[in-house]
């Protein structure tokens, strides 16, 4: 039977891109859905997100998707968070005046700041927007992607680089977590669906992943 990949839709952002990138790399059945039953029935789950975390968490709570997501993660099926979908998995974010998040990963989401500087002291623009290199920590989702390959980022808040759950690091004024992973849960700060060859490879790795790190 054909597997199903559910892309969770909670009204925040452009899911067309995620779905069409998946369509490009897999022959699984891809559904973009806000139906909890459909998410529960899927073999794999993608949790995207763009915009402000306060709005995202508002919708997530309203729809009961925090509970749904915890359930999906504990069921053992592969789950992938993208961008704000990754940040929402942390305990807390500084954004939107301070926002409690889903708390599947410990730690904080912080603002890059208004006086961010490069190692050489040059001022850095925020949002961190564009293609940056990721230092990979051994994980099946990096398979066939060259070490330090570039991915497309766009964000003003970042996840601290600390703990054994960091599976990728990136640098922009500070060193931050570009990817987090634990067991069947993986999350990336960048947009794989917009990261051309390297990003499509990561999505392909995800749809083939058995959920074991």
């Amino acid at each position: 039977m054909t597997e199903t990949v559910a892309v969770i839709d909670y009204g925040m952002g452009n899911l067309h891109s995620v779905a069409s990138a998946l369509g490009k790399v897999c022959d699984q059945n891809v559904v973009v859905t806000s139906d909890a039953g459909q998410v529960r029935g899927a073999d794999r789950v993608i949790f995207p997100g763009v915009g402000a975390i306060g709005d995202c968490m508002g919708e997530i709570h309203r729809l009961g998707f925090d509970q749904l997501l915890r359930e999906q993660v504990s069921s053992g099926k592969p789950v992938l968070g993208i961008c704000v979908g990754m940040q929402a998995l942390l305990a807390h974010s500084e954004e939107s005046g301070g926002t409690d998040c889903i708390d599947l990963f410990p730690g904080q989401v912080k603002f890059f700041g208004h006086d961010l500087k490069s190692a050489s002291g040059a001022p850095l623009k925020v949002p961190h927007m564009g293609w940056n290199q990721v230092e990979q920590v051994d994980h099946p989702l990096w398979e066939s992607i060259p070490q330090l390959a570039r991915f497309y980022f766009v964000h003003s808040y970042f996840v601290e680089n600390s703990g054994s759950e960091v599976k990728g690091r990136c640098q922009y004024g500070v060193e931050f977590a570009a990817a987090l992973g634990r067991d069947n849960l993986f999350a990336v700060q960048f947009h794989p669906e917009k990261s051309h060859t390297a990003g499509l490879q990561l999505l392909q790795n995800f749809v083939r992943w058995n959920g074991q790190a």
Partner: peptide, 27 residues
């Protein structure tokens, strides 16, 4: 958007949140 997997910006004639939503939904 179905064939190009890099960021896409669309400008020209964007006058309302509806216009924005339409373009973002289109990819």
């Amino acid at each position: 958007a179905s064939e190009v997997f890099i960021p896409l910006t669309v400008g020209g004639g964007i006058r309302s949140n509806d216009d924005i939503r339409r373009m973002l939904n289109a990819g």
